[in-house]
Design a protein around this nucleic acid. Structure first.
Length: 430
DNA sequence: TCTGGGGTCCTAGGACCC
DNA sequence: TCTGGGGTCCTAGGACCC
């Protein structure tokens, strides 16, 4: 991290509009003008809504589906369960398209990417339009482009590009006057700034800071004393001092988690064991995909904070005897932890397994007592398991402890086909 | 009946060291 | 009489992100 005092950098933030909903629409042209929402795992909450759905009832966002379902259906809203295989695939296409426009790219999230446009000698607004049109043409996804001299400003510009219809999806702060930008900032609440969430906004409001311009003009030193370095950095970034650099490295995972709420409440140890086993294998498989080894396992179980009963949440971390990516070993540890946590008479809503203290392949510490021959045997077994599960379908081969009936499995009533990830589900022209 | 999942980073405080 | 100070490492918890 360093401060570039001579800041003539240009960052662009390219962000897909209602990404999940847009992905669903790409493969359903018949829903072009239909309001569409996408539901979280377990069909729990609304997590994405197309612009038609937004225009009708923005209140749906983050609401539990069961509360709005009836009304939404009456209004002609079409719902989809989340289909992460599809979204990951579309994300890859989107990122690959953006790569055409800058040699320096940071893939920030599944639907957002920063580009470094420093030194590009053309009308940036026109360039932004070109990026937007190309993404639409190559992937079918609508996006907005925001540009600024820092990443924080590019994020804010992107917000404006989305909200101001006359900008046609592209907003470039670097070609606007300071006064114009200040006028925009004065209209924006703090929560629109990258890094300011609900808690910070409330605290700052109490101090009389209500809009972005006010925050921009706050004294960074004083803010640092009260709120820490992050917010100080944000203020500097709002003032055009670049403190956040483009991060082109595809960062290695620091932990891998698999968890889900249950389709129905679960109270027996056996059912919990099945779920924890499932998550242990799932997380282990993802660990191997990243080429990583874990040193510790974290298991948690809880009932729902929305239930009448008193909240019960328990979790425990156990160290593994040596770093491993072995499903069987990780599973055994996870089940042992579960036994420590389990309490009878509780209606559990959720369980999860987190793998921690990850190290890359080749860097793992070997334990004095580890037997290398069995290690090789295990890794051959794991490789075989992974290749069968990837060739056929996830879960073709699994641990017996994962159970067969899966009373706890999540609901996914409205899932679209795996258009891009399964030969059998390719969309075909009629 | 039904309320997401998967992450990162920073900070404060305690333990421990010399 | 007088009870240090500077440093590291670890962990839990909080805040944020999409």
């Amino acid at each position: 991290m360093s401060f570039t005092s001579q800041n003539n950098r240009v960052y662009a933030l390219c962000d897909a509009n209602s990404f999940y909903a847009s992905c669903e629409k790409v493969f359903r042209p018949d829903l072009k003008d239909t309001p569409v929402v996408v539901l979280s795992n377990n069909d729990g909450c609304v997590i994405a809504q197309s612009k038609e759905a937004k225009a009708m009832l923005d209140l749906y966002m983050c609401r539990p589906w069961f509360e709005v379902e009836e009304e939404a259906k009456m209004l002609g809203v079409v719902a989809f369960s989340s289909n992460y295989e599809l979204y990951a695939n579309m994300s890859n296409r989107f990122m690959a398209t953006l790569r055409q426009f800058s040699p320096r790219q940071e893939v920030y999230s599944i639907d957002e990417s920063f580009l470094d446009l420093t030194g590009i000698k053309c009308d940036l607004v026109a360039y932004g339009q070109q990026i937007k049109d190309t993404v639409m043409q190559w992937t079918g996804l609508p996006i907005c482009v925001g540009m600024g001299s820092t990443k924080t400003l590019a994020k804010l510009a992107n917000h404006c590009a989305k909200k101001q219809p006359h900008m046609n999806g592209v907003c470039d702060f670097t070609s606007m006057s300071e006064t114009d930008i200040d006028n925009i900032m004065q209209q924006l609440p703090l929560s629109k700034v990258w890094g300011i969430g609900g808690k910070l906004e409330a605290k700052l409001n109490k101090l009389g800071v209500h809009d972005v311009l006010r925050l921009k003009r706050a004294n960074p030193k004083r803010i640092r004393d009260e709120f820490g370095v992050l917010l100080e950095r944000t203020i500097k970034e709002l003032n055009g001092e670049s403190w956040l650099e483009l991060d082109e490295t595809l960062s290695e995972a620091k932990q891998v988690m698999s968890s889900r709420s249950f389709g129905a409440r679960v109270s027996s140890l056996q059912e919990l064991e099945e779920a924890v086993s499932f998550h242990a294998s799932n997380a282990s498989a993802r660990l191997r995909k990243h080429g990583l080894y874990a040193n510790a396992v974290h298991v948690f179980i809880q009932n729902s904070p929305f239930d009448k009963a008193e909240f019960y949440g328990a979790s425990l971390i156990a160290a593994l005897p040596s770093s491993t990516d072995n499903t069987l070993l990780i599973n055994r540890t996870a089940l042992w932890i579960l036994k420590q946590l389990y309490k009878e008479g509780i209606y559990y809503q959720k369980a999860g397994v987190m793998l921690m203290e990850l190290v890359p392949e080749g860097a793992q510490q070997t334990n004095l007592f580890t037997q290398n021959t069995s290690d090789t045997k295990y890794s051959t077994l794991m490789a075989t398991l992974d290749s069968i599960n990837s060739k056929y379908a996830k879960g073709t081969i699994k641990l017996a402890s994962e159970g067969i009936y899966k009373t706890w499995v999540m609901r996914r009533s409205y899932k679209s086909p795996n258009y891009t990830g399964d030969w059998g589900e390719l969309p075909l022209a009629k």
